[in-house]
Amino acid sequence: MRKRTAPASPWFATVLLVLGSAGCAALWIMLAAATARQSSWMAVVAALDAALLLRMARVSPGAARALWGVLATAAAIVLANWFIAAAQLGRMFGLLPWDSALKLGAGHAWNLAQLANDPVELAWLGAGLAVAAVASR
């Protein structure tokens, strides 16, 4: 018979998800910078990472956990795309990526993300969100 453990604190799960999403986005940004590609397949990796972290935090299974997984994956997608655009744009102006990210407006970031993500990249991003919903529940 398996011993049941009490669920972890909601704060612990939230902090774990924020750190996991940021870490996965940082890895994604470095990969995109090294390969000069969007590397949108990393959205699936971010989804699996979020699902694993939710299980490690002992969040109760169900629709709420699936929603948290999708939100964490979406946050990694937005963060990665923002910093990839900022790094590429900042390189032209001699700015560091984090300086460029602070100067990049939402409208400009949206336009750059639309230009950089072709239909295949968008399919990977959608697959990442779908994997997050299924793997996190």
Rank of each mutant, 00 (worst) to 15 (best):
R4W: 14
T5D: 12
T5C: 13
A6H: 15
A8K: 10
S9V: 06
S9N: 14
F12A: 13
V15G: 11
V18H: 05
G20V: 09
G20R: 01
G23W: 06
G23A: 08
G23L: 06
A25H: 07
A25E: 08
L27H: 06
M30V: 04
M30L: 07
A32F: 10
A33T: 10
T35N: 14
A36E: 14
R37S: 12
S39G: 02
M42A: 10
M42T: 08
V44P: 00
A46F: 02
D49F: 05
A50S: 10
A50I: 02
L52T: 06
L53D: 15
L53E: 02
R55D: 01
M56R: 15
A57E: 06
R58I: 07
S60E: 15
P61Y: 12
P61T: 15
G62K: 15
A63T: 11
W68L: 11
V70W: 07
L71I: 15
T73Q: 04
A75N: 02
I77S: 06
N81P: 07
N81K: 11
N81M: 03
W82I: 06
W82T: 04
A85V: 08
A86E: 11
Q88S: 04
L89C: 05
R91C: 05
M92Y: 07
M92P: 00
F93M: 04
L96Q: 14
L96G: 14
L96Y: 15
P97Q: 04
W98L: 13
S100T: 10
L102N: 03
L102P: 01
L102H: 02
K103H: 12
G105R: 01
G105H: 02
G105N: 01
A106P: 08
H108Q: 03
A109Q: 07
W110S: 13
W110E: 05
W110I: 10
A113S: 10
N117G: 03
D118P: 03
P119T: 05
V120E: 12
L122Q: 13
W124R: 01
L125R: 05
G128H: 03
A135G: 15
A135E: 06
S136W: 09
R137E: 08
R137D: 09
